[in-house]
Design a protein around this nucleic acid. Structure first.
Lengths: 148, 148
DNA sequence: ATTTATGCAAACGTTTTGCATGTGT
DNA sequence: ACACATGCAAAACGTTTGCATAAAT
């Protein structure tokens, strides 16, 4: 599923324009945190991962800054926070194409699946109980091809 | 969805026979913890909730005992642990009919949906990427009828 | 008698917070 | 200059663990 050569045209190039002009300030920390997320390819970074990556360029960065910035980016809709059941939340830049996560409970591999896969389920729920499935990313557990 | 008068025939009456005979011991604590879960109707109890309920009868019970017992019951397949995104895991006795959770992000209401609702999704995933959807309970976020 | 379970207290990992200082605008 | 962001340290949170004691088999 992961294809390192593909263009990341799916992701905003920079968060600056989106942060600026809402009373938000563009700091070195925030830029580095955003870059860490965007530069992660398809990996899912925990807050600790982000701290580690940012510290390469800015060793003094504090975890609380990272947590606060991640919260901020999530609130602004630029980043998604997902609980993959690993004990710590993981973050990734929001993509144009909404997707969900398939976690292999045996090897830990995480695949993406397009949101369209849920269309049937969503209408089933709507029809059955009136429940309107939200936009939050889903985590589905099971076995990947290799482990099944 | 919740119907207080319905028989809870869906749930094992007692855990004792299932625990005994595996080197497991039936203690007052374990019985009370099991009763708390079964007596909760359709509510989802956190570990702290269970502690509170057990303490009515046995004030000296310790959280670690509750955590250990819940782990045990989960391992034995008698109880399910679910992360509803509330910060703490919730537990409920395993029912004959597997189900999943619909969490309303506005009012917090939790509905159940039968596992059959996922059949379509499961085969879609199997066909598309070979991913075999597991048996773990799912948590779907969205809006309930009243809040949609 | 033996082995497992309990309670307590302390430790854990992740995340949040208060507050004085620093920095973008 | 001002408001907002940062770093630090401490605390909060749910959960787990070590160990001596207690209880079930």
């Amino acid at each position: 599923m992961t294809h390192p050569h593909e263009h990341r045209h799916d992701v905003p190039a920079t968060a600056a324009p989106l942060l600026r002009g809402r009373g938000r300030r563009v700091t070195r920390q925030r830029t580095l945190i955003w870059n860490a997320l965007v530069g992660s390819g398809d990996e899912h970074l925990s807050a600790a991962d982000v701290v580690a990556r940012v510290r390469v360029d800015l060793p003094s960065v504090s975890p609380s800054t990272v947590y606060r910035t991640l919260d901020l980016l999530v609130e602004e809709g630029l980043v998604s926070r997902t609980d993959l059941g690993t004990g710590s939340a993981v973050y990734e830049p929001v993509r144009r194409h909404r997707h969900h996560h398939l976690v292999c409970d045996r090897c830990g591999r995480v695949e993406h699946v397009h949101d369209d896969a849920l269309a049937g389920l969503a209408s089933h729920l709507r029809a059955q109980s009136g429940f309107e499935l939200g936009t939050a990313e889903l985590t589905l557990h099971g076995r990947c091809v290799d482990c099944a």
